[in-house]
Every structure is written in C-alpha cells, then in structure tokens.
Amino acid sequence: MMKKTTVTLLAMSSLSLTAYAQSSVTLYGIVDAGLGYTSGQRVVQTKGAAGKPAVYSNGSSYGFASGTWSGDRWGLKGNEDLGDGLSAVFQLENGFNIGTGQLGQGGREFGRQAWMGLSSTRLGKLTLGRQYDPIVDFVGTISAGTFLTGMGAHPGDLDNIDNQARESNSIKYTSPVFSGLQFGALYGFGGQAGSVKNQNTWSLGGQYTHGPFAIGAAYMQATNAYGANGGAWTSAYDGTFASSINEGFASAKSQQIIAAASTYQIGQVTLGVSYSNTQYQAGSFSLFSGKETFNSAGATVSWQATPALRIAAGYDYTQGSSIKGESAPKYNQFNLASYYFLSKRTALYGLVGYQKASGKTLDAFGNTVSATASVGDVGNGISSASNVQTLVRVGIRQTF
C-alpha cells in the first residue's frame, strides 16, 4: 500500500511540475542592408561655440546603408507559465550596424530593449527595465513609420513616434485588451540623489481598434538633470536630439510630448493621419529661454497592390514657434516607398524622402541659425547644411 501511495504522489508531482514548467525562449532578429544616396550631408569646416555658429560644407553621399527599413537587431524572448493565466516574461534586444558590426544605442549590449516582469491574461503585464514608452506602443504602431519606415517619421523623430528613444530604469504597466481598447503607463526613475523629479520620465496612453479602424494617443513628460549645461540631455528618457531639427534644445529643463495617430482600411488601401505637439521648457542652465513648441502633422496612404507588392506615400508638416522674434522654423517632407516580398521573411524595398526647411532655429550651441533639412529619423546624424535634402535607399530585409 505504501509503495502504491508513493508512486501515486510522484506521478501527481510530475504532472504538477509539467503544468507549471511550460516555458519557451525564442531567438529572433532582423538584418537589413542596402545602398543609399543623400543629396546633402553636412561636414564641419569650422567648429562652433556659443556666439559662433559652426561652418559646414555640404556634399552628396553614396554608399552602404544599414538598417534603413528596420534597425538591425537580434534578441531573446522568454516566457514561463506559472499557472492560472500568469507568466514570467523577459525580452533582451540588441541593436547593431550590419555594415560595421558596431553596437547601436550608444554601445549598449541590449540597447533596444532589456526588461522582465509578470504577465496575466486577466490583469495585464507589469515589466521593469529599459523599455519603450506608451507613445511607441500605442501611437507608433499605427503611424507613418508602419508604412514608410523611419524615413517617413516626423522630421528628426522629435516626438519619438518612430521609437528612436527608450526609457531606462523604468516600470511599465500594459492592460489586457477590453473590447478593442488597451491602455498603459510608464514611469522612469531618474536616480539622481536628492531629487525625485530630476531625470525622471512618466508617460501614459491607449489605443482602440474596431474592425478597419484604429486610433491611439499618448502623453510623455521627461525631465533633464538639474544643472544640465552645454547642450547636454541626461534623463531616464534617451531623447531625440541627434539632428538639426531640435539639437538646439537638448539643454531643456523638461520635455513634453502629446501624440496621436489613426488609420482606416478600405479594401487593399490603408489611410493614416498623425499629429504631435512637442514642447521644450527652458531652465536656468538651458542654452535658450522660455518655451519652444513644435507641432507636426502627417498623412499617409498605403496600397497592397498584390500579395507581394505594397506601395506607400506620405506628407509631413512641422512648424516650431518663433525664436527671438525670428521667422518660425518650418519643414515640409514628402515620402514614397515600395516593398516587394520574396517570401514571408525576405523583402526588397525602395525608399525616397525629400524635405525643405525654412525659417530660423537654434544650433547645438544656442546660436540662432537658418533651419536646415534632416529627413525623417534616418536623417539623424546626417542632417543637411542647406534647407533641402533628398534621401534614396534601396535594400533587402530578412527577419528570423
């Protein structure tokens, strides 16, 4: 009898362990490479300083292009079933340049994403680590970047709709989907001694989907480190100050973003609109004074011409507020894109972006200068020295 009881208990224990031990780890990634042409890429001839704008030359650029459609990456996703609809989850995602093999996101090992937490089918998901904010989760997933890649982002991706930035040291909650509605919130800990507010970030947003219609909106508030100087931005939020669009406001005391997007599908055609309001508030150590506001609006149309061929077009308009009584900076941007899928995993693409800038803005040293073009988020770091810029990219992307 004792022997039978022992065998029965062992069998039940085995079944119990099996029920709770279901888990998986998935390796995934994207490799994206091609060739590119940039009509104007600024090159420093004379270094700038406060009171002395840099002198740039402007030259065309031809060559290898890495991660134009999608940033090159590889990652690991993990899920362990804890029973009763509860799971332990994690994601580690590395970004890199396929042309040089260098790490992206400032040389971080897992700079794109690095988080872990718990997920419940009834209560939602709570995660901690380096993560995307609700602007990316609820607005970015239905924005122009979905159809036009980062080249179709609002100039400089100054609103982060195209996920250039992440929040480090953050905690995030994402709800289950309730009849098409999902919402979430994030808080990034600044970690600055003596202050709860400095360097912190908080954000919230939501998305509603019903049939062919989708709409999303989100808000984010990020603060800089107290005493930021020399154009520096130090926060739980990475910031998007790598282009001529907004590099002059990296010393802001705080940044606020309101963003929204919507799409509607009619047969094989998807129409989209987007809007954002980005504000930079100056502090006593900032290189500008008062408040600078950028309003951006865009429209896209995407046509699934055949099961393998998709064509898209878009237009964006961005306007900043006047600086020191000068004419406000304005940016008009046009994009065309085509994609041909050789398989579910492999596709060819061709992209064209054109932007024209006008008015005055600030450079990285706080000097008032003429606004220059910087197409989408792909233009980050390769802004033009003139008021116009054209980008052309052709390439191949494979997912795994």
Results as ranks from 00 to 15, higher is better:
Gly191Lys: 06
Ala193Met: 06
Asn163Leu: 07
Tyr173Asn: 01
Gly180Met: 05
Ser195Lys: 05
Gln164Gly: 14
Ser179Arg: 05
Gly180Asp: 08
Gly191Ala: 11
Asn169Phe: 15
Gln182Asp: 06
Asn163Tyr: 03
Glu167Val: 13
Ile161Cys: 09
Gly180Glu: 05
Gly156Thr: 05
Asn163Arg: 09
Arg166Lys: 14
Tyr173Phe: 14
Leu186Arg: 01
Val177Pro: 00
Asp159Gly: 11
Ser195Met: 06
Glu167Thr: 13
Gly194Arg: 03
Lys172Phe: 02
Ile171Asn: 03
Leu186Pro: 02
Phe183Thr: 01
Asn163Glu: 13
Ser179Glu: 13
Tyr187Trp: 06
Val177Arg: 07
Ala165Val: 04
Gln182Arg: 07
Ser179Val: 09
Ile171Met: 13
Lys197His: 07
Phe189His: 08
Ser195Leu: 06
Gly184Ile: 01
Gly191Ile: 07
Gln199Cys: 02
Tyr173Thr: 01
Leu181Ala: 15
Arg166Ser: 05
Ser195Trp: 01
Ala165Asn: 04
Tyr173Trp: 04
Thr201Glu: 00
Phe178Tyr: 15
Thr201Arg: 02
Gln192Pro: 02
Asp157Tyr: 09
Gln164Asn: 13
Tyr187Glu: 04
Gln192Phe: 12
Leu186Gln: 10
Phe189Asp: 05
Lys172His: 06
Gly156Asp: 04
Gly188Asn: 09
Arg166Cys: 07
Phe178Met: 14
Gly180Asn: 09
Gly184Glu: 01
Val177Gly: 04
Gly184Gln: 00
Ile161His: 03
Ser168Glu: 09
Phe183His: 02
Lys172Ser: 12
Lys172Tyr: 03
Tyr173Ser: 01
Ile161Trp: 03
Ala193Glu: 11
Gly191Leu: 08
Ile161Glu: 12
Ser170Leu: 02
Lys172Glu: 12
Gln182Glu: 10
Leu186Glu: 12
Gly180Arg: 05
Leu181Val: 14
Ser175His: 10
Lys197Gln: 13
Gly190Glu: 00
Gly194Glu: 04
Ser175Asp: 04
Asp157Ala: 12
Asn163Met: 10
Asn169Glu: 08
Thr174Arg: 12
Phe183Tyr: 15
Asn160Met: 08
Ser175Gln: 07
Ala193Arg: 08
Ala193Gly: 11
Gly191His: 10
Gly194Cys: 08
Leu181Met: 14
Asp159Ala: 13
Gln199Phe: 00
Ala193Thr: 15
Gln192Glu: 14
Ser168Ile: 08
Lys172Asn: 06
Leu181Pro: 06
Thr201Pro: 00
Glu167His: 08
